[in-house]
């Protein structure tokens, strides 16, 4: 029986859809083999990569991974730490010793450090098979959020929010002067002056709407330019030029260099954002 691919690259596929026939092709992420056929497990974009058939999901919950920086909300105060909501079906634990540098007496009122409802920028340090999650705040760029606004986007759209080598987020920060943090769980902090926060939020919503289309960076830059005019690249280093010096204008606070995760993305240069998703996926496999 001859082998053939039955979908076009980047086509929208649905669960159960046959992607390829025959044994010449191999099932990759989010696909499975049934007899001669390779089928999709999820709603997503088909990704034909040589002989391997993959699907990039277009929706779905955030899957926690070690070293991901996320924005989480405190939902309960426990004996020796906090329970925080991560945007997954599972809450995470933030231990006192992972939350603050200072010495905390036994029995001290933890709500004086973090109150229920507070948002934190944290990093995942451990995920068990049952999805018990630990996070820490004791690294540069991790902090309690005191001002600005927090918005939510689909976690699948995070790679596009960040852009290749942090180009997209760098662009928005440069034009708006806002401090921004994009959590891998799709929660985004925008902190700056009110008008500019609004502009940054509009840009984010635009990316969200057109995330599955191409030519997005130019489109967003045109939009931002049409509102605030030209902003020279030196105003704040963009991720494109100097990926390792990714400090935004808004985050002057030298004790808190912002955006370690933009650097993380910058460290793994990618051809396009879909590949970024793929590479993350394959990291996970190793």
């Amino acid at each position: 029986m001859s082998s053939e691919i039955t979908v076009e690259h980047r086509a929208v596929v649905i669960p159960g859809q046959v992607l390829a026939q025959g044994m010449d092709y191999l099932p990759g992420e989010e696909t499975y083999r049934e007899g001669e056929q390779i089928r999709s497990k999820v709603l997503g974009l088909a990704n034909v990569n040589g002989r391997v058939m993959k699907v990039t999901p277009l929706s779905g919950p955030y899957i926690p991974k070690v070293d991901d920086v996320i924005i989480a909300q405190v939902s309960d105060i426990l004996m020796s730490g906090w329970r925080v909501q991560t945007g997954t079906p599972y809450s995470a634990m933030l231990n006192v010793r992972d939350a603050t540098q200072r010495f905390v007496r036994k029995g001290e009122d933890l709500s004086r450090i973090l109150e229920i409802g507070d948002y934190v920028v944290g990093k995942i340090t451990n995920v068990t098979s049952q999805n018990l999650i630990d996070i820490t705040m004791k690294e540069p760029g991790l902090f309690k959020i005191n001002s600005g606004r927090v918005i939510q986007v689909a976690p699948q759209k995070v790679p596009r929010m960040i852009g290749k080598r942090g180009s997209m987020i760098g662009l928005i920060k440069r034009y708006t002067g806002c401090k921004m943090v994009v959590g891998q769980n799709g929660t985004i902090l925008i902190d700056g002056n009110a008008e500019r926060e609004e502009l940054a939020q509009k840009a984010i919503r635009m990316i969200e709407e057109f995330a599955h289309q191409s030519g997005l960076t130019e489109r967003i830059e045109d939009f931002l330019k049409s509102v605030v005019g030209e902003v020279p690249e030196t105003a704040a280093p963009s991720g494109d030029r100097r990926p390792r010096d990714n400090r935004s204008r808004g985050s002057d606070d030298s004790s808190k260099p912002s955006k370690p995760f933009v650097q993380r993305n910058a460290d793994t240069p990618t051809e396009n954002t879909d590949k970024a998703v793929d590479e993350k996926g394959s990291e996970e496999k190793k």
């Binding site: 909300q73 109150e115 409802g117 507070d118 948002y119 959020i145 005191n146 001002s147 600005g148 606004r149 927090v150 009110a194 008008e195 609004e198 939020q201 509009k202």
Partner: peptide, 21 residues
Amino acid sequence: MIVNNKAIPSLAKKDMRLDGR
């Protein structure tokens, strides 16, 4: 969303809203 709960009244004082309306 506690941080937004803070932002909403402080924006309102300037006749602004989180969604720009």
